[in-house]
Design a protein around this nucleic acid. Structure first.
Lengths: 199, 199, 199, 199
DNA sequence: TATGAATGAGCGTTCATTCAT
DNA sequence: GATGAATGAACGCTCATTCAT
């Protein structure tokens, strides 16, 4: 049990190191040696836990996707479309801040389809699912131009996230998020609601 | 003069090959050999024109930035802030379509600050200049929340461009652009204007 | 005593696994891990029994050489040179079939003198001893050209074994053995004898 | 033309180095670095001429097989079965001496089927073709037990070659060859012929 | 201007081996 | 006895870069 603990720690240590390296130098720019060294471990040990560099990235994605999906669970609990829409956006912005490094990795990877098999597909899937959800909610909330607006929303979210990831100290993510929400709801009959909570 | 012509052609040929390679395979994924071969030229000749792979990318950026800035010249001619704002956005969307490959390269590179010295700074500068311009125009057009809205506009533009670059056949760039414009001007007193032209 | 039994079993299990791996994949192609896994044992345990991969191969040779030499014991009991010669050949062919995997390992190893210290010498010794024995028997049996014929016999034996090891389903080892015997004795005054038995 | 000469020399130099390394240390035991260093060239240059270690071995085989087949051309010119059989054997023994290193490589490789794709098949093919030729000639020469004797002949040849390759200073290849021939023809009605020549 | 032979640092990966438990 | 985490040297290979022609 102690062993298992140690084992999990080592794995987590390696994943963390990989996350930072990939985020800072990109996937191709991060050598396996750097990742292991940064974790304070040996090259061979990394291969004890992950069969390849690709597997490391995939594990990183698996881990992060799971964490992020967990954050969105609270959204599912809300049934009112408008409040749900708001919640979805708020959680999205919160997740950006909490998983900045992962988004950096993801943005770096998605422009190079060949890098890791299956990952582009996963990212595309994620994107599509988000769009579908926005579309559904916008229609349910009777927002005009729902199809195009869903695309615009995704764009704004994606763009804000990238700007934030690139210039975290400069880009006012929260303010931009609030403005986005205000714009979205400004022309609709008001609904009273209290904002939402933790991840 | 003929010689100079030939020289320029060769340079352009190499830059074009580099653009396509970088866009398709990323910077790290494109070997100097592939670029030269794709241009139908020899490895040594490439080095005759560009001292390094980095220099090739830098030249690519310099060339594209110049081309793109040329597109924005017409914007400067417009003095009315609101029409100028509209023009700026319209040109932006047009440029995205015309320089999709370059944007792909740019998006792939900007997440890896170390890749090529000076490029991150250039991209940041560009971004900052765009933001400054939006800010100035929004304020001049009396759009509320100008500072934050400038960031939001940049985000939406950036995000739309990425979505378009990633899924050109799926993402409705024009419609999203129109909606963005409509939103922006919907709450302002209408101004009559005729849209603008070529790049 | 029970423990010792277990110990011997484990050792034998590992040797058997090594034999099969080496025979199928060669010495260099067989990793210590594969050998341990195939035996259903852990990596550490293998090192408990054998200090190195080389030692494993050496033990394998020691074991097989002993087993094979046991098969030749019955030859020593025969005092008539001609019958002894025949017996020696018959046993040789029998041993090839019973130790095919070992011969495969041996043939794979003997072409790479550096692989395992001492093994080449052992193989050479074996070869020399066999030659000496043939020479002695041929002379005692008054076979002409005994010295050269001893070399030819060794060659035929060696070659037949290799052919058999490489193409066990295709090469008619028994028939070749019989023909070899017939040739050998065809020009000598016949001697009545009954063939020999098990290993 | 001078360049091409240099290029061919370099290629040949590398092939020669590979032949020696493979012969002495085996395929797996010879690192690409060792081969390049032994040729006095750099690691990268080797890859300039051969795309992989496998390709190097394949080129080595292609080259040697061609050389060896050239040696057998004179056999085809002989139409009398018995003389042709003798010629075939004589050339075989001559080739063994002239291509000892290659045979060593070949013997090392053929016990590890997975090493290089297609090579095992090639070796098997060669073997089969040789057997077929012996069979045909033995039958044409009215030698009894032709089918089995063809196998025995191959075995003796194969074995003699291996013995010679392993102990070139000890194994009397020529004498063994002569004895083999004498045995083969001893029981047949004599045919007057003069032996054959160069490779 | 134009070529491609030549170089070697660095990469991802494997694997025999050690050692704390 | 038994485990498998941990190590690092060495491997096959890629690729940006240099240079003689």
């Amino acid at each position: 049990m102690d062993q298992a603990h140690k084992t999990d720690d080592t794995r987590a240590l390696l994943l963390r190191s990989a996350l930072l390296c990939f985020a800072e130098q990109g996937f191709e720019g991060s050598s396996i040696r750097k990742i292991a060294t940064r974790a304070g471990l040996s090259l061979g040990l990394l291969y004890h836990y992950f069969p390849s560099k690709e597997a490391l990235l995939q594990a990183l994605f698996a881990q992060s996707v799971e964490l992020i999906q967990g954050c969105f669970l609270e959204v599912a609990a809300e049934s009112d479309p408008r409040r749900r829409l708001e919640l979805l956006l708020r959680v999205s912005f919160r997740v950006m801040k909490e998983h900045r490094d992962f988004y950096r990795v993801s943005y770096g990877v998605r422009m190079q389809p060949g890098v890791v098999a299956g990952l582009s597909e996963l990212i595309l899937l994620w994107n599509t699912a988000l769009h579908a959800q926005f579309l559904e909610l916008l229609e349910a909330a009777a927002v005009p131009d729902a199809p195009t607006r869903a695309f615009l929303l995704i764009s704004a979210l994606d763009g804000a996230c990238q700007q934030y990831v690139l210039h975290p100290d400069f880009f006012p993510l929260d303010a931009v998020g609030e403005l986005l929400l205000r714009d979205l709801f400004s022309n609709l009959p008001p609904v009273d609601h209290e904002p939402s909570a933790s991840c």
